[in-house]
C-alpha cells in the first residue's frame, strides 16, 4: 500500500473540505471492504484517506410517514436488524444475498453503492476502461456487460443494493463540492457510464459524497429481488433483477425493473416495465416481460449466456412480486 495521510472528521462539511478536487488524490473510507483491498493492490493510490466512520450524522435509520432515511455510514447488518426496514423486505433480501457475516457487519450502505467495479482488468491495474475497452472486447469478457457496452466502459456495476433501491425510488442526499452545499437526487442519477479514464462510474464530483439514502413509504410492499449466482458463497452474482410493481387486483398499475451485474450502471429496463402496465401479473406475463427486458442486449464474445440469466432474473423477480414461487431452486 502506498503511504497516505488520514483524517477522521466528525462532521460532513469537514470531510468535504478535506477532499481533494482531483479523482484519485483522496478517497473516502467507510467499511474498507473494497477500498483497502484496492489500495493494497495499488489500483487506487490516494495521498489522503478521509474516513467517514466518526461522522455521527451519517449513521442510523429514521422513519416518518413519508418513508425512511438511512445514513450512508449505516452498516448493512443494522438494516437487516432494524424493524424500521420491515416495510422493505426486498432490501433485506438483497442484503441477505450478500451472504457473508463479515461483509454485512463491516460494509456500509453508502460504501456498497460506491464500490468500484469487479472487472478483473480494472482490479489488475489496466484502468477502469482497460485501454478504452479493447482488453475486454478481445479478452476474457465472460463477466462483463451485456447492456450499455457500446462505449469504452464494459465493466458491470458491482452494487447489489442499487437495483432494489432504485426500483423502490430511492433518493440520495449529497454534500459538496463546497462545505455547506447539499443536493438531493434520485439514486438513478448517481450512476453514469464513464467515457474516459478521467471519469468515474458516478456523476459525483471528487469533492462530493453521499450522506443519506431516502426510501419513500412503500405501502404496497410489492418489490422483489432475484440474483443468479454460481452456487452458495459471497461471490458476485452473474445477473440480478429488482422489480417493483403497484398492483390492483393482480393488475399492474405501475412498474419499475432494474437489472444488476449486466451493465456499467444498474440497468433500467423501461420497455418491460411499460409493457406490464395494464396487464395481469402472472407466470405468462412475467416470462414475456423477461424476454422484452433482454431483447436489446448486446453481449460480447464470451458472455451471451448472461442474456439468458438476465431474462430469468426478471421473470423470477416478477413471479416473486406476484406472490408466486420463483420457479427456480
Amino acid at each position: 500500500m502506498k503511504a497516505f495521510r488520514y483524517a477522521s472528521p466528525r462532521v460532513e462539511d469537514e470531510a468535504v473540505d478535506l477532499l481533494e478536487d482531483r479523482w484519485g488524490a483522496s478517497e473516502l473510507l467507510a467499511g474498507g471492504t473494497d477500498l483497502v483491498g484496492l489500495m493494497k493492490k495499488m489500483v487506487v493510490t490516494p495521498e489522503l484517506v478521509v474516513s467517514v466512520n466518526r461522522i455521527d450524522s451519517m449513521r442510523g435509520i429514521t422513519a416518518d410517514s413519508t418513508g425512511v432515511t438511512i445514513g450512508a455510514g449505516t452498516h448493512l447488518d443494522e438494516l437487516l436488524d432494524s424493524p424500521l426496514m420491515d416495510d422493505y423486505p426486498a432490501v433485506k433480501q438483497a442484503i441477505r444475498n450478500i451472504d457473508s457475516l463479515q461483509l454485512q457487519s463491516q460494509s456500509t450502505v453508502g460504501g456498497e453503492l460506491c464500490q468500484r467495479p469487479r472487472c478483473w482488468y480494472f482490479r489488475n491495474g489496466y484502468g477502469l476502461l482497460a485501454d478504452q475497452g479493447r482488453h475486454v472486447v478481445e479478452g476474457e469478457n465472460q463477466y462483463h456487460a451485456i447492456f450499455g457496452n457500446s462505449g469504452p466502459a464494459k465493466f458491470v456495476s458491482a452494487s447489489r443494493l442499487a437495483p432494489v433501491l432504485m426500483a423502490l425510488g430511492a433518493e440520495i442526499r449529497v454534500v459538496g463540492p463546497s462545505p455547506g452545499d447539499e443536493t438531493t437526487m434520485p439514486l438513478e442519477f448517481f450512476y453514469r457510464i464513464p467515457r474516459n479514464e478521467r471519469q468515474r462510474e458516478t456523476s459525483l464530483e471528487p469533492r462530493q459524497m453521499i450522506t443519506h439514502i431516502r426510501l419513500p413509504a412503500d405501502a404496497e410492499r410489492s418489490c422483489a429481488v432475484y440474483e443468479v449466482r454460481r452456487g452458495a458463497g459471497p461471490a458476485d452474482p452473474l445477473a440480478a433483477a429488482a422489480a417493483h410493481c403497484r398492483l390492483r387486483d393482480g393488475v399492474v398499475e405501475a412498474a419499475r425493473i432494474y437489472l444488476g451485474q449486466v451493465a456499467p450502471t444498474p440497468w433500467n429496463v423501461e420497455e418491460a416495465a411499460r409493457w406490464l402496465v395494464g396487464r395481469t401479473l402472472d407466470e405468462r406475463t412475467a416470462r414475456e416481460a423477461g424476454e422484452i427486458a433482454v431483447a436489446r442486449a448486446t453481449p460480447l464474445s464470451k458472455n451471451a449466456y448472461k442474456v439468458q440469466l438476465a431474462r430469468v432474473s426478471v421473470e423470477r423477480a416478477l413471479r416473486l412480486v406476484a406472490g408466486l414461487d420463483c420457479g427456480g431452486f
Binding site: 474498507g32 471492504t33 483497502v36
Partner: peptide, 27 residues
C-alpha cells in the same frame, strides 16, 4: 486474502465480525 474474501482474518470489532485485513488500525 488481501481483500478479506477468505474470512481468515476475522476478529470482533465492538462484537461484530470484520476482516482485520481490510480495517485500518486507526479505525
Amino acid at each position: 486474502s488481501e481483500d478479506g474474501s477468505s474470512g481468515g482474518s476475522t476478529v470482533l470489532l465492538d462484537g461484530k465480525p470484520v476482516s482485520a485485513s481490510t480495517v485500518l488500525a486507526l479505525e
